[in-house]
Design a protein around this nucleic acid. Sequence first.
DNA 1: GATGAATGAGTTTTCATTCAT
DNA 2: GATGAATGAAAACTCATTCAT
Lengths: 194, 194, 194, 194
Amino acid sequence: MDGTRQRRRGDTRQRIQDVALGLFAEQGYEKTSLREIAERLDVTKAALYYHFKTKEEILVSIFEDLTKPIEDLIEWGRRQPHTLDTKQEIVRRYSETLAEAAPLFRFMHENQATVRELRIGEDFKARIQSLRDIIIDPDADLVDQVRCASALFTLHAGMFLLQDLEGDPEERNKAVLEVATDLVTQAHRGAGGS
Amino acid sequence: MDGTRQRRRGDTRQRIQDVALGLFAEQGYEKTSLREIAERLDVTKAALYYHFKTKEEILVSIFEDLTKPIEDLIEWGRRQPHTLDTKQEIVRRYSETLAEAAPLFRFMHENQATVRELRIGEDFKARIQSLRDIIIDPDADLVDQVRCASALFTLHAGMFLLQDLEGDPEERNKAVLEVATDLVTQAHRGAGGS
Amino acid sequence: MDGTRQRRRGDTRQRIQDVALGLFAEQGYEKTSLREIAERLDVTKAALYYHFKTKEEILVSIFEDLTKPIEDLIEWGRRQPHTLDTKQEIVRRYSETLAEAAPLFRFMHENQATVRELRIGEDFKARIQSLRDIIIDPDADLVDQVRCASALFTLHAGMFLLQDLEGDPEERNKAVLEVATDLVTQAHRGAGGS
Amino acid sequence: MDGTRQRRRGDTRQRIQDVALGLFAEQGYEKTSLREIAERLDVTKAALYYHFKTKEEILVSIFEDLTKPIEDLIEWGRRQPHTLDTKQEIVRRYSETLAEAAPLFRFMHENQATVRELRIGEDFKARIQSLRDIIIDPDADLVDQVRCASALFTLHAGMFLLQDLEGDPEERNKAVLEVATDLVTQAHRGAGGS
DNA sequence: GATGAATGAGTTTTCATTCAT
DNA sequence: GATGAATGAAAACTCATTCAT
């Protein structure tokens, strides 16, 4: 039996998402044409339109599938007391989530201008803000607020911009996490935590 | 005398750059068409081609004009001893430069996917790396290296992503600078500086 | 028992025709896609192809079902003597037929450019010509011939173009019929009838 | 000198309108593609877009150019007393206008479904209504109102639907005009004119 | 009596770029 | 120091149609 052909049955939708995300992350959203995606999958452009109503919907569907864990994390965070432990746990779990869906987050990071006009732009922004609101004490001083925001940027950027730093990726990720955790911790202390 | 018309004489090149940067920063590079730029300036597309050979060249020229100060800063930094003072000064001056050409840097930040394929992408990356190399002690431990990189991201992101944080912009910028300086200082101490 | 579902059994063909005619009349033939028809019926496009071989065939089948009365009328008319009474009766019965299948005739009227290239275009034209030939005396003078033709247009257009005239629809239709009858009558008199 | 090439300079816009109107009238608006228009003019599709912003705009521009005389006629009609003479004059001049821009009016007549959704649909409808309002006495009885409307249809349809009637076109047009004038006259008498 | 998945040929529209004047 | 007119390539998207199941 032809396993390749067999497996293709029914998972075209998934394959489109995979290939699309790959290309979006590599070249950007605008520079990736549906022709290119279709060619790489060896189907016609029209087949893409059978599975998704628009180009944007391809992206939206990827986004929704892959950012579910963040929604869960926010949900969880909201129900916890705002202790240092909680904050550190948020940072840790967020960094894990980022690593697991690295291509998507790399895409989001590098295509902000594009994404801003798309529906997911708002969604993503809102999510990050929610995370920040859990980590930041609203009555902390401005510097500590910036520290918390910076912790999140550091996680984001750590994934994409540090690829030239020496050391193996795992260690690098650990270092990034440590810096982010540190920033949150300092902010917590400054805000009167013990 | 018609000052407007008078002043327009001979500075069309500059006006193109201004309008283009505004649109690039607002909508992204790909989504900004030459038609749009021309219309906003009330000239024809062909006029743009009198002043610039390609669309990319418009961007390149803007980039080169506005990032001269960074080149100078790097040059300066390289001739200084790698003391804490120097590092802090670099951070301070870099933050000033970013603020002065905010639209360009916002553009660079939000269009990384696009810019990566353009000539200026490489240039910009190289410059940031140069800055980092001045700030980072090559034999510091990885965590401290990340701290330095993080200081730079914080400056960058601080300009664009914190606009919803309360407080007036000036204070916010001061807070951002303080966090960045702090990160560099911690890194310096950790690396065995005094 | 679910009457809706029950009744749907087996009359899908009819339902397709109904929905299609509605959309064709409302938006035109070209602007109505099979997707739209299918969606409105909550079936797939492929289902339409089970019942009809092509898009055109849907229209043809509607046309054939609904213009049977006109064929009968022509048949009848041909066997009558060409008296004034016959002519008036033709006009009267034609106006009834038009009213009964108003959406179809509205469609035919408003989509002549499209319909001309379709099979039914020829058929329809031939039918109207047949009617005209019954009403018109071939040796009447040209003006009277035009009067007869005009009587038919008036019936057609009366259905669609006078909807903004005040008065209730029934009275309007009566008025239209009177004008048409009048035209035929004048033509008959002019041609030497008594 | 190459007159053809020479003459092409600067009248491309006009040539687009001519060819487009020809095709629109022949095949309908939807079935006429820009590719077809461009090919027939031996230019690229993009050239069409240099002269017109959209496909619809091509049609709009044709419509506006060719229906100016009707606007003038309405203007004139409004300033005249509502005598029988005026009405007859309107009918006469309207028939002339129709004849002069026959392809456009044929197009409007045969593409009503399409045109209804376009901007010009509303415009055209409004214009015909204006004419009718000049011809119709608002307190005439319904039958006479229908007669006036019928006069206008007769003019319209007379141009397109009677092409199979024997007799040379000029005589046919005269006959059509006579029937239309007659209808208006009868309506005027019925309404209490002398 | 229908669906799910796909195709091929087409559509309108946009873009960066060119060049004679 | 510019414009008017055009092009070639490509984009996103739509449509009627097919066919194995």
